[in-house]
Design a protein around this nucleic acid. Sequence first.
DNA 1: GCTTTGACTCTCG
DNA 2: TCGAGAGCCAAAG
Length: 102
Amino acid sequence: MPTKFENKVYEICRKIPKGKVSTYKLISEKLGIRAYRAVGNALNKNPYTHKKVPCHRIVNSNGLIGGFAAGVNNKKRILEKEGIEVKNNKIVNFDKKLFKFK
DNA sequence: GCTTTGACTCTCG
DNA sequence: TCGAGAGCCAAAG
């Protein structure tokens, strides 16, 4: 059973629409803290898969893929499958694909 | 309860 | 433009 903090992270991730991406920073800001790393930590050991939580839509603030528990390569494939172009571990048209929580 | 560890981000030279 | 260092926070050991 994940912690409260982790559940919040997952909940926010679920709000990201298909074809969009978001960043660790935005999520942490949504939580009201600067726990970028803690967010990544939570997603790393998340009990859900990308089918439950679109954790693959979370990238670094500069558009880099960052990492993925199942492998960055896998992450790239999923993103491309959703219509997001990835070049050299980086999101193409990042500012256009970026989804901002409001 | 202190220390270590990360799917991170920012600042500075 | 790029790399190193510091700062950040929650979990796990």
